[in-house]
Design a protein around this nucleic acid. Structure first.
Lengths: 113, 113
DNA sequence: TTGTCATATGAAATATCCATCATTTGATCA
DNA sequence: TGATCAAATGATGGATATTTCATATGACAA
């Protein structure tokens, strides 16, 4: 018998680009690879590589649309995770944790602001 | 104005040792650094380094007890996160995701089994 | 077909993280 | 104080992940 390992899924979320991509997909809705790359000022191949990780963990889904592939967030489970982390941060890490914080510009796609 | 970055917190959870430590603390209760090291067959300094990360994210708390420091899990927020990830895995990643799974021995401290 | 656009893939360079060792700090007690 | 045990810290080599570039694949339309 085998069991899943949590750390792999958390590790996939433990990356600034991937989190920003999820936040983008959540706020702006499903979109293509190029669209994501443009919005987040990333290389196409970097976006593609990152999406592969997110896809493997089922944090996003894809569907083909002509030449494009439209990626969508798996809101069902990603949203609760983000909500939980946000709750944790607000409860425990607001004061005395300045070094964890980022500027407004960098945080443009922070979730549910 | 500044905003927190989620990825840092997820990254801290995205590590096998740290997840196992949290699972241990959850199942067996608060304990010292040496005790954790012995239980998980880790070096004292490795445990200490890992605990520092968990502490910075407030996933654990400490209290001094004589020469020892007793670490405890922050159940209030870690438990829901783990529950959520487990739910996600069970719902989306049980079939066709064999490569994500670990053996029973490695998973000894998987959460709430 | 052939050309074009969108995306994926592979491999090499780079950056980042982690394990380990030696050392230091800190608490306790004789 | 000095001895002892517990834990933290710092530095560094090695492992792992990410970025980047070049190229391949795949869909579509002419």
């Amino acid at each position: 018998m085998k069991y899943p390992s949590f750390d792999h899924f958390f590790m996939t979320l433990g990356n600034r680009h991937r989190v920003r991509m999820l936040q983008l997909l959540n706020i702006e809705g499903p979109q293509s690879v190029n669209s994501i790359a443009k919005a987040l000022d990333m290389e196409q191949s970097a976006v593609s590589h990152s999406l592969k990780h997110l896809l493997q963990c089922h944090f996003v889904t894809v569907k083909q649309d002509g030449k494009e592939r439209i990626y969508a967030i798996n809101q069902d489970t990603v949203a609760p995770l983000f909500r939980q982390i946000r709750r944790h941060i607000e409860k425990y890490c607001v004061e005395g944790c300045e070094h964890y914080w980022e500027t407004e510009k960098e945080a443009h796609y922070d979730y549910q602001r």
